[in-house]
């Protein structure tokens, strides 16, 4: 076992301080070995989490489970915000074992951050592709930060595949495929959430993730030109 690994659950504590005076807390706990979401025991998932309720296009779990694991995870988060308008100002504080992040933002932005973790730790085979990223979760990531993290993660994954004797995907075509499937999940989940919410904060949070997700294949197809400038000093001699 790696000496860098931690044994206790990984926790992300989110605190939303809304400008209407509401304080909303969430504790996200992840299994330190599998990075799987650790649910609270006393929870009855709502109707809209059933697998056949607005299923995602190409859902691999459709005939295999009763409930959509992504929806079940999200249902814990979205309830307090179902009447909240997306652009409601909020201070969102995120505490991890190592540091604290805080940002004056909107509810939709804060929710987007937390929903991102819940989706990729849910055991949905499509979203699971990004699960290792949650170990170093970066709240309120910008599109550029997201691109850097995702590309780095995927290339590191290819490094390990190559080390293990597999065929690495250095041109990142597999990443484009992953994001095409993720895009379908984002669309499906936003439809479910629309049915469960009376305002737009929850849906818009997924929409933000979707817009990031839709950009990744575009960036990859453009050979990551958007972040190439960071590496120019190492490329000069090769021109």
């Amino acid at each position: 076992m790696s000496s860098l690994r931690i044994a206790s659950p990984i926790t992300y504590n989110y605190q939303f301080s809304l400008n209407d005076g509401r304080e909303i807390f969430f504790e996200i706990r992840l299994d330190p070995n599998t990075l799987e979401f650790i649910p609270s025991s006393d929870f009855q998932p709502p109707e809209w989490t059933k697998i056949d309720f607005y299923p995602c296009e190409g859902c691999p779990l459709l005939d295999k489970v009763q409930r959509c694991p992504v929806a079940v995870n999200l249902s814990r988060i979205i309830e307090p915000f179902k009447h909240t308008v997306s652009h409601t100002p909020a201070v969102v504080k995120v505490e991890t074992e190592s540091r604290v992040y805080s940002k004056e933002t909107t509810v939709q932005n804060g929710l987007s951050s937390i929903i991102g973790i819940c989706m990729v730790t849910s055991n949905c085979p499509v979203m699971d592709e990004l699960r290792p990223l949650t170990r170093y979760h970066l709240p309120f990531a910008t599109p550029e930060e997201t691109l850097f993290r995702v590309a780095s993660y995927y290339l590191l994954r290819q490094f390990f595949i190559a080390k293990d004797g597999g065929t690495p995907d250095w041109n990142l075509s597999g990443l484009i495929e992953i994001y095409k499937k993720i895009s379908a999940v984002n669309v499906g989940i936003s439809r479910r959430i629309s049915q469960a919410s009376e305002s737009d904060a929850n849906v818009n949070a997924v929409i933000i993730l979707h817009s990031y997700g839709e950009s990744i294949p575009f960036f990859v197809e453009n050979e990551l030109d958007e972040i190439r400038y960071l590496f120019e000093q190492f490329l000069k001699d090769r021109k």
């Binding site: 939709q108 932005n109 599109p143 929409i207 933000i208 817009s211 950009s215 575009f218």
Partner: peptide, 17 residues
């Protein structure tokens, strides 16, 4: 759009077109 990331990503895609 009030969401900056949406403005950014849409701008990028439309500019590329």
């Amino acid at each position: 759009d009030d969401e900056e990331s949406l403005r950014l990503t849409l701008k990028l895609r439309l500019t590329a077109q």
